[in-house]
Amino acid sequence: MSKLLLVDDDAELSSMLEQILTKEGFELTLAADGETGLERALSGSYDLILLDVMLPGIDGFQLLQRLRQQARNTPVLMLTARGDDDDRVAGLELGADDYLPKPFYPKELVARVKALLRRTPATSVRQEAAEFAGFTVDPKNNKATCDDVELDLTPTEFDILRTLVGGTGEVISKDQLSVAALGRSLAPFDRSLDVHVSNIRKKLPTSPERIQTVRGRGYRILQLA
């Protein structure tokens, strides 16, 4: 049974989500403010964290930032009631794996949760190691390198890079990448994949342009001259 942590100050919503997610077979822990949320996220071993942005005390973004600083790569699904597109993507830039704008259909939430859980290391192990153009991705040991420099990637970034490297220079469509890394197809106007790829580029030691955007088609890895 997967253990989930829900950090949201909306008590009514939390209790209803608890009913739904428990029915789906998840074990849910609640936290109503940022401090408690961070404490629980750091102390317990959760398979997934559902994180609201607007929280009393430290907000969702700060919580996420501190969590990632402590090198906790627990998958995080941001729930946000803010309207701004920038706000939504901001979470991804800080290392969230996916986001769901409020209001959402509870079924959509359950589907996202399941998708994110599906590609946790348990499944990754079955994937073979890939190597191309200076990149090596080894799912067995959860280790990725670029020009022999080890990369510190979130699980989502790791899966995206693994899929790209496995393509050995072929263009991989965004939808394909989204399915591989987020366990779902890309929605219209969904920028989450672009943000994840941009995060990977920032973590490369040199020449970030070697992960090339092919406009309208997807991404590919370039063999450096």
Binding site: M16, Q19, I20, K23, A81, G83, P101, K102, P103, P106
Partner: peptide, 24 residues
């Protein structure tokens, strides 16, 4: 605008969840 959108979305989110629960 951001606050308004937040304030409107929060009850909407609860209503969607409550609505689904009534279907159970």
């Amino acid at each position: 605008l951001s606050d308004v959108s937040h304030e409107l979305r929060s009850p909407l989110a609860r209503m969607q969840v409550a609505l689904m629960l009534t279907e159970g």
